[in-house]
């Protein structure tokens, strides 16, 4: 079985996003960019399935700027076999909406015919938490979100999902679209020789036009601003002082 893993290039999770002074968006020039952490988990899961003999080939795909090649190379260095870049934007400031991404991914899925697609549950830049669900709807494949454990049994998946109340166990028929939650696995570190090897792995470069998909956005961003700052707090010296402040100053304890 082939597995398709979409990976997004996003601001590194350790970088605090800064809003541009003209309120048009977040400063993405000259900041550290990395593979979306959830997508790294998705790639790792696919590799483990290949190591276990469940999967035969892992294809990674990214939609974005030319530099998303770096993100794809990271996935290849982890152990993916082949990459597809769909060049859909000229600058980092244009990002493609989940609906358009899902439409492109649906086309790639038709061409590649994988048995499953594993995505991250959300991209940490726009936090939409939408692409996997949309792709599942467009393909009519099983929708399996927030997976924290997956086992494959013939054409059936047994999956544990993280939900508000705790964990939920479900079964789903293949083909399926899965989104990875944080605790699905711990991604491996990439070793230097594998980075070298990854440079030789095949990468196709495409455009949205190749797939006949219109990526023009439905949403218009009218402003992006900083959240209101919290007023500076104080340090207290003791538990007694803390309890006193909570009762008599903040009024949150009786």
């Amino acid at each position: 079985m082939k597995i398709l893993v979409p990976v997004k290039r996003v601001i590194d999770y350790s970088v605090k996003a800064r809003v541009k002074s003209d309120q048009s968006g977040v400063e993405l020039n000259n900041v550290k960019m990395s593979i979306n952490p959830f997508d790294e988990i998705a790639v790792e899961e696919a590799i483990r399935m290949k190591e276990a003999g469940t999967a035969s080939e892992i294809v990674v795909v990214s939609i974005g700027v030319e530099k998303s090649q770096e993100t794809l190379r990271t996935a290849l260095a982890m152990g993916a076999d082949r990459a597809i870049l769909i060049k859909a934007a000229d600058t980092v400031d244009t990002d493609i909406e989940p609906l358009a991404v899902a439409k492109l991914l649906a086309k790639v899925t038709e061409e590649e015919a994988p048995g499953m697609v594993i995505l991250g549950k959300q991209a940490i830049d726009n936090d939409m938490n939408a692409t996997g669900q949309m792709l599942s709807a467009l393909l009519g494949w099983s929708q399996v979100t927030y997976a924290s454990k997956i086992t494959v049994d013939g054409d059936t998946l047994n999956v544990t999902r993280e939900v508000d109340a705790g964990l939920q166990n479900i079964t789903a028929k293949l083909p399926a679209v899965i989104t990875a939650d944080l605790r699905l696995n711990e991604p491996r570190y990439v070793k230097l020789p594998n980075i070298m090897k990854a440079k030789k792995k095949p990468m196709d470069i495409k455009t949205p036009e190749d797939y006949g998909v219109d990526v023009s956005p439905r949403l218009t961003i009218t402003s992006v601003v900083e959240p209101p700052a919290r007023a500076a707090g104080i340090k207290v010296e003791s538990v007694t002082e803390l309890m006193d402040k909570l009762k008599n100053e903040a009024g949150v304890l009786s």
Partner: peptide
């Protein structure tokens, strides 16, 4: 909110 709440976005939709 976007970027873990470090920026607040206003959007309009044409849908």
């Amino acid at each position: 909110p976007i970027y873990a709440g470090n920026a607040i976005q206003t959007v309009t939709t044409a849908d």
